[in-house]
Simulated assay, not measured.
Amino acid sequence: MIFRRIFKKKHLFLLLIILVFISLSLVYFNSHIILQKSINAKVMTWNISGANGVDDDNSTLEDIVEEIEEKDPDIIGLQEVTTEIDYKGLADELDMNYYFAEAGNTNEGNLLLTKYKIIHAEGVDLPLIDGTRARVLIKAEIEIKDQIYYIFITHLSRYDKPIDHWNQASFIASLIPQTSLYNVILMGDLNFAPISPPYAELIIKLRDSYDYINDDNGYTFRSNDRFKRIDYIFCSFDLEPIKSEVLCSDASDHCAVITTFK
């Protein structure tokens, strides 16, 4: 009788282990392998530096427009868009829908431009611990081919505020399960390097679209003759990047990142 009870408990324990293994395998399988879908969209992120150009060379908004029109993206996330910029006029000129979110009272923020219908969009304040300059995240839902896609656009705290941008990255990562593990695109000037704790936290849930395609460093910013990669387009594992490039010009001190999805 005692042996039979031990035998039953042993089998129950083994069954529990098997069920846990199957559950974890399904999560991995769903998020990494299956459900690759065709979105046929080009996505662009760009810190336009207030349309001031490289070293404040008085670049104009028209220079920004020309670069965008040449690449013809379907979804755009712009950072350091000042409230002095006529972003409604910019959207009209590009024939795109738009949503602007200001970071606190800083007179600048992030701008979503898209050829697709915006179902919902809001600005979410990001947490601050070490920094004093407000940061904001655009959290939007757009409709593509009768499906909802979740678009996040942000500009995290400066790289000399590592506590803040790690905390902000964790906050953004926590929002993703509230939406979906699918149809997610996160883009922006994230102010951290690929070898960093915030990057490691995001890469668990999202794919780095540029790194997925390319083997080079993909530098997007130069400071004091040091090159850095701090601008990104991340996506959920169901979306497949087929091309990703960095576009540098005199229109901004940041390079744009442009990813085309299958």
Rank of each mutant, 00 (worst) to 15 (best):
I185M: 09
S170D: 12
F152I: 04
L156G: 00
L156C: 04
D208G: 02
S174E: 14
L186A: 02
G188V: 07
L181E: 11
S174M: 11
N167L: 15
D160N: 14
K205A: 08
Q168V: 04
Q178V: 11
Y182F: 13
P162A: 12
L156H: 01
P194A: 06
F171S: 01
F192E: 03
L206M: 07
D208I: 06
S170R: 13
D189A: 07
I151E: 04
S196F: 11
T154F: 09
W166C: 08
I151C: 03
S174L: 11
N167Y: 11
A193Q: 14
P177R: 05
L156N: 01
L206Y: 02
A193H: 12
Y182R: 14
A200K: 12
I176S: 04
S157I: 01
K205W: 06
E201D: 14
Q168L: 07
A173V: 10
Y159W: 10
N183Y: 07
Q178F: 12
S180W: 12
L156V: 02
T154Q: 03
M187E: 03
I151G: 06
S196I: 09
L175Q: 15
A200E: 14
L202T: 02
D189K: 02
P177C: 08
F152P: 00
S174R: 14
D208M: 04
N183E: 09
I185D: 00
A169L: 03
L156Y: 01
N167S: 14
P162H: 09
S170A: 13
N191Q: 07
A200C: 07
F192Y: 12
I172C: 09
I195H: 13
S170F: 05
P197C: 11
N191I: 01
Y182I: 06
L190S: 03
R158E: 10
Y159G: 08
L175C: 11
Y159L: 11
F171G: 00
A200H: 12
D160C: 04
D189V: 00
I151D: 05
M187D: 07
T179L: 15
L206H: 01
R207G: 01
L190I: 01
S157Y: 04
L156R: 01
Y182W: 10
E201L: 15
I172D: 09
Y199W: 09
P177D: 08
M187L: 15
L206A: 02
L202G: 02
W166A: 11
L206R: 01
P177G: 09
L175S: 07
H165A: 04
D164I: 05
N167A: 15
T154K: 07
F192W: 10
P162L: 11
I185S: 00
T154C: 13
I153T: 08
T154P: 03
V184A: 02
D160I: 09
Q168D: 05
I203H: 03
Y199E: 03
N183V: 05
D189G: 04
A169H: 03
P197I: 15
Y159N: 13
N183A: 04
I185Y: 04
L181N: 14
P177H: 10
G188K: 06
T179E: 15
A193N: 13
A193W: 12
I153N: 05
D208F: 02
